[in-house]
Amino acid sequence: MSQWNHNPVLKVEHLTMRFGGLTAVGDLSFNVGRGDITALIGPNGAGKTTVFNCITGFYRPTEGRLVMRGGDNEAHLLERLPDFMISGVAKVARTFQNIRLFGGMTLLENLMVAQHRPLMAASSWTVGGVLGLRGFRSAEKEAIERAKYWLERTKLIDRADAPAADLPYGDQRRLEIARAMCTGPELLCLDEPAAGLNPKESLELNELLSYIRKEHHTSILLIEHDMSVVMEISDHVVVLDYGVKISDGTPDFVKNDPHVIAAYLGVDDDEVDSVEQEVGL
């Protein structure tokens, strides 16, 4: 049942994040299985995005350890890496809840910026690029090919030269995923990828995520409110409430967990006592 514990790509151990007196995340531990789609769910304000920000280096955790073990089996302690190394060295990419694209740049440029690190190295930190050395030119061609590949995958190739801010909302979401994938990640963190999508787009998103997992062997960690997405595609669900893990298991297990039902739906007045007993409050 718990295959994610045998071969985890990311181990979150006793993660605590305090902002002054507020404990946004308290002593949270869970594993993200290699090649799994793991969903992090919970009511609003449960601390999901805070966990993301800790993993991707935007916050430094107050306590705890985040061990990322990529395909090369080398362990990276994410809480010790500066934020720009997390994408490049530890190979963790992310998207944002409120889309953050480079609006004034074209789709292609957005994906080229995502390949900054390899291109920078290929241009010998700009010197070779200015001189137009061959090594850089072939690297650039490769980068464009990779960008084209992801634009085709996300069905955005027709608008490759249009500014990103001109795209409709659903396309912007997909472009952000394509941009994250261009960094060549081993763990892709998606912050509410289905928010604001219509059912058709939601379905396409599911297909895209399944494709990414299958073809690129990228593990996916996602925050999501849309239960149709969560229950359909995820292998493993972690439920947070008030910064504390209240459930952890397969979608079916979580769906029937009384803790989760209580946190999400509440309980009838006359059932409070029995449920509290069952839950152990």
Binding site: G88, A93, R100, F102, M105, V113, H116, L119, M120, S123
Partner: peptide
């Protein structure tokens, strides 16, 4: 070149730049 695109990306959105491994 990548450096120039990184400058412009920085002007567009600094937080996104950081998430993409740009120092």
């Amino acid at each position: 070149l990548p450096i120039g695109r990184a400058w412009e990306a920085l002007r567009e959105d600094e937080i996104a730049c950081r998430s993409l491994g740009i120092n």
